[in-house]
Amino acid sequence: MRFTKDHEWVVLQGDVATVGITAHAAEQLGDVVFVETPEVGKTVKAGDAFAVVESVKAASDVYAPISGEVIEANGELGSAPETVNASPENGGWFAKVKLSDPSEYEALMDRAAYDAFLATQ
């Protein structure tokens, strides 16, 4: 699993990246009440806002950690946004993206680097 400074995570299987927000982010947001996942078929660039996550008090953009085409979105979050709190780094995934540039993945932080980054925040 790799991480961004904007608190997204990525798991790579072949050339398909599963993306979500980190446990740290989910905790900071508080109770998630709504998730807007990206449209399937959309092409995204790393750093683009491609999803929205809302708590009662805040709405946050989620940025695509890597570039590619969205091939699947987690439809379950529509009716059960609380999954993001319950299982942020597993069942609460947002979307699957078919990578266009595998080198982007390598440039992301690993768990140790992300934890170190959090410690500086």
Binding site: V33, E54, V56, K57, A58, A59
Partner: peptide, 12 residues
């Protein structure tokens, strides 16, 4: 559903 509103979303 106040996240639609100006005091949270501001320019969005």
């Amino acid at each position: 559903l106040s996240t639609r509103e100006q005091h949270i979303r501001r320019e969005k």
